[in-house]
Each structure stands twice: as C-alpha cells, then as structure tokens.
Simulated assay, not measured.
Amino acid sequence: MVAGTVISAGGTLAAGQAAEDASKFEAAQYRRNASNTRGSAQRAGEEQRRNKRLAQSRLRAVAAASGASASDKTTTDLDASIEQEGEYRALSALYEGEEAARGMEDAAKGALYEGKVRKRASQIKAAGGILGSGGSLLDKYG
C-alpha cells in the first residue's frame, strides 16, 4: 500500500511538472508569434508608406503632364490627402500588429500561470494522497 501511494504521488508530481513544462513551451511559441507579428506589421506599415510615395509621385507626374504647377491648389490638396491617408494606413498596420502581439503575449502569460497552477495542484494532490494513505495505515495498524 505504501509503495502504491508513493508511486501514485510520484506520478501526480510528474504530471504537474509536465504540465508546467508544456506551458513554458506554449508561452515560448506565443512570444515567438508575437515577435513575428510585430515584424509583419512593420513591413506592412512600410509597404503602406511606399504605396503613398508611389501615389504622390504619380500625382505629380500627371499634374506636370497636364501643365499644372507644383504649387497648384488642387495638386497640393491631393498631395496632402495622399500623405494623410498613407500615413494613417501605415500607422493602422503598426497598431493592429502591436495589438495582436500584445494579445499573444497575454496568452503566453496565461499559459505560464496555468502551468504553475497545475504544478501546484499536483503537489497538493500528491500530498493529500500521502496523508490519506498515512491516515488509512494509522487506522488499520494504529
């Protein structure tokens, strides 16, 4: 009976440790994904800025071909609108990526917490099993 109790407690503790190890691995994956998401968002933001510059360049080329001056109000208004829209899109891409990354980092923290709780629960369960067996032995042989 004692050997069975010790083996059961050892298995319970091992399961708790395995749960904590798995949560650490999961958290590392979440953190890696968060880093990748930030990188993708930065690339998306730069792509938006590149598109903005291309649109401004096209506007200027079309305006010049039509005989409009660079200081023409319509041209400058359109150029300013393109600038604002392009920067808005770039910053939006960065914001969305950052928010997604933060969500992944929060998930990593949750996974770590869950692993610690499972490990602690296994310790309590193992201790309870040992104490319960000790009580049974005391009742039986005490």
Rank of each mutant, 00 (worst) to 15 (best):
I130T: 03
S136G: 06
R43M: 13
A63E: 05
L78K: 07
R49D: 07
R31Y: 05
M104V: 02
K116H: 09
G11D: 13
Q56G: 09
R89Q: 15
T12F: 04
A19P: 06
L131C: 09
G11F: 11
A28N: 05
A65P: 04
L78D: 00
I130W: 09
A18F: 07
A3N: 07
G4C: 00
Y30N: 14
K116S: 14
R31S: 03
E47L: 14
A28W: 00
Y95T: 08
L91I: 09
A127F: 13
G16M: 06
A90K: 00
K140Q: 14
E87A: 02
Q84A: 13
G132K: 11
T37P: 00
G110A: 13
S133M: 09
S136P: 01
L54S: 14
R50Q: 12
T74S: 10
V2M: 10
Q42E: 15
D139T: 08
Q48V: 02
R89N: 13
D72V: 07
A34K: 05
G115W: 09
S71M: 00
S133L: 03
A3K: 12
A55L: 06
A28M: 11
Q29N: 12
E98S: 05
S35D: 15
L78R: 12
E47N: 13
E105W: 07
R89T: 00
G134T: 08
R50K: 15
M1S: 14
E105V: 09
R38A: 08
A93G: 08
G86R: 05
E87R: 10
A63L: 05
A41N: 07
S133E: 07
G132M: 13
R31I: 10
A34Q: 04
S133T: 10
G86P: 09
G110C: 06
G4I: 09
R118H: 08
Q29G: 09
V62I: 14
E96T: 12
A100V: 10
A44H: 06
G11C: 01
D77P: 00
S40F: 12
G142K: 06
D139H: 06
N36T: 11
S92C: 05
R120V: 10
A27P: 08
